[in-house]
């Protein structure tokens, strides 16, 4: 996928002091449903990587997930975010990003 400097970098993600476990569970269910994963939402470890090892998602999943997250939370994912490896690092970091930017 293409990343670059054309678009302004997204804001730095602040440390998530108190994980929103309710949001994390909702998001885990969204991931399992939108990507038709065999795993259950409860089996996703909040701190484990979503891509590569861990859940093993790839760029096609990322595109699919971006659509589901935009529809559910009104948050648009960006390559800049992913490039920083912060947001997609884990379920917890993704939930933290959504909590910070969600419109609904």
């Amino acid at each position: 996928m293409s990343t670059g400097s054309f678009t302004a970098p997204a804001g730095t993600i602040g440390p998530v002091v108190h994980p929103d476990t309710g949001l994390e569970q909702d998001l885990a269910r969204l991931i399992v449903a939108s990507l038709s994963l065999e795993t259950t939402a409860e089996e996703i470890v909040p701190e484990a990587p979503l891509f590569g090892e861990g859940l093993g998602l790839d760029s096609i999943d990322a595109l699919e997930l971006s659509l589901a997250i935009a529809k559910a939370y009104g948050v648009q994912l960006r390559s800049d975010d992913e490039r920083n490896h912060r947001i997609f690092a884990s379920l917890r970091s993704l939930a933290g990003h959504i909590a910070q930017h969600r419109a609904r």
């Binding site: 054309f6 678009t7 971006s66």
Partner: peptide, 17 residues
């Protein structure tokens, strides 16, 4: 267009730019 154009928002912004 040189920059990111993978996610839907990026494609929209790239086209607008």
């Amino acid at each position: 267009h040189a920059g990111a154009s993978f996610y839907p928002s990026e494609v929209q912004e790239a086209l607008a730019a």
